[in-house]
Design a protein around this nucleic acid. Structure first.
Length: 263
DNA sequence: ATGGTCGGCCTCCGA
């Protein structure tokens, strides 16, 4: 997607360590050049985040960091105002999974929803509690009646067609009936799945496991999503998955998803 | 084919 003056491009990418992925990320920032980039699993803190390299690529970085695990970042070519650095609803939650900003009249949230495996574990109940907190926040934002983009790794496969082998994933926390229902509840608030608004492409997956040559066999799943408020949906021009970074050396297991909206 | 692959970090956990 090339830039135009009257549009805003917003991308989401789980990079699985910003330091291990640095050249892949800066190369992609230079070539794809989105205005705003939501990164997940940066696995870095303010002390270890490579601010200089990101700035050299033309982006200001705002991060919510954590050592070893999780961590989210908002990169932007244009100024934005951070207004939340944690998901409301549990002040004791120590995991770095949420950052929210304003950019003009837009609201942009970058989220890393818990994986939740194995089913029935404390991780699974944490995932579902986190999704209910996210729903409460998304309902609040909806009341502002502004264009809002909730971008991130949702760790949810919404439908059979978003998975190379639905039967194999039936009892996984990414595809359990309860997980899919909780994701549908987010849409039922009044949000739209950007990729499903405009396109009917063959390849919509955003993640391929590192094991077993999954990418070469296209054994993928679609778990990275951009959910849009009605006001953002009205401004949606295009939404694409960019598979190119997944095929490179030292790739993340996820690949970026990008939307273009009227500014 | 009862395995397989990453990243961080410290010999295992999370994905």
């Amino acid at each position: 997607m090339s830039e135009t003056t009257d549009s805003l491009t917003i991308a989401s990418w789980n990079v699985n360590s910003i330091r291990a992925r640095l050249t892949n990320v800066t190369d992609w920032l230079t070539s794809a050049a989105p205005d705003v980039v939501c990164l997940q699993e940066i696995k870095a803190t303010e002390e270890t985040f490579p601010y200089e390299a990101i700035e050299a690529a033309g982006y200001r970085a705002h991060i919510v960091g954590q050592k070893s695990y999780n961590g989210v970042a908002l990169l932007s070519k244009v100024p934005l105002d951070i207004r939340l650095t944690e998901l409301p609803g549990d002040p004791d939650d120590p995991q770095a999974r949420y950052i929210e900003a304003e950019l003009g009249d837009y609201i942009v949230a970058c989220l890393y929803l818990p994986n939740g495996n194995p089913m029935g574990s404390e991780k699974y109940s944490y995932k579902h509690a986190w999704m209910r907190r996210l729903g409460a926040r998304m309902a609040e934002v909806l009341q502002e009646e502004r264009p809002a983009v909730f971008a991130g790794d949702y760790n949810i496969i919404p439908e059979d067609r978003d998975c190379y082998d639905p039967a194999a994933w039936r009892d996984d926390a990414l595809f359990s009936l309860a997980s899919r229902q909780e994701f549908q509840a987010l849409l039922n608030l009044g949000y739209y799945d950007a990729l499903r608004c405009l396109t009917h492409q063959a390849h919509l997956y955003t993640y391929w496991d590192y094991t077993g040559g999954a990418y070469a066999k296209d054994n993928g799943i679609r778990i990275d999503h951009l959910l849009l408020s009605p006001q953002a949906t009205d401004r949606l021009i295009d939404c694409q998955v960019d598979r190119e970074p997944r095929g490179r050396e030292k790739a993340s297991d996820h690949t970026p998803i990008i939307a273009r909206l009227e500014r």
